[in-house]
Design a protein around this nucleic acid. Structure first.
Length: 136
DNA sequence: GCCAACGTTGGC
DNA sequence: GCCAACGTTGGC
């Protein structure tokens, strides 16, 4: 079991949009590192859903329901999508500010590589963020 | 709206 | 294969 974090601008695709859809197809990724991370995702992996540009916070948890396959929005065979479904909307969102301020999360890929849209999360980081999401 | 960080492109 | 120019992302 691996853990991940994906970013989305809520004006384009928010957590609520994702929940409404039921199963969200994560398309449009055009970055090799993000693509490699998506290809490493397995069914059942847990994924934080982060709002970029607005909100700047982790809003909920999703899980992978279908592993990487060719992105249907392009002919270009380099790119893939994964499918995810919502698991839980967090009682308390976890803000970027909180995560940056937490020494235990100083190595978080989201913090270190702020432009990467799909990043891995270590199991210990996952536990810390889940903790913050439930008791603040 | 600005700008730093970073990825991509194309000329050489 | 280097690197300057340019485009994009995303925090501030």
């Amino acid at each position: 079991m691996n853990y991940w974090l994906v970013k989305s601008e809520p004006s384009a695709y928010s957590w609520d949009d994702f929940v409404k859809q039921g199963v969200g197809v994560w398309d449009g990724v055009r970055n090799y590192q993000a693509r490699n991370n998506m290809q490493a995702m397995k069914v059942g992996d847990l994924v934080f859903f982060y709002h970029s540009n607005e909100g700047l916070e982790v809003v909920g948890l999703a899980k992978v329901v279908k592993e990487a396959y060719q992105d249907p929005t392009t002919e270009d065979t380099r790119w893939v999508v994964v499918e995810m479904t919502a698991v839980e909307k967090f009682p308390k969102t976890v803000t970027l500010k909180q995560m940056k301020a937490d020494e235990r999360l100083s190595d978080l890929a989201l913090v270190r590589q702020s432009r990467l849209s799909v990043t891995p999360v270590k199991p210990e980081e996952f536990d810390i963020i889940i903790g913050l999401a439930h008791e603040g």
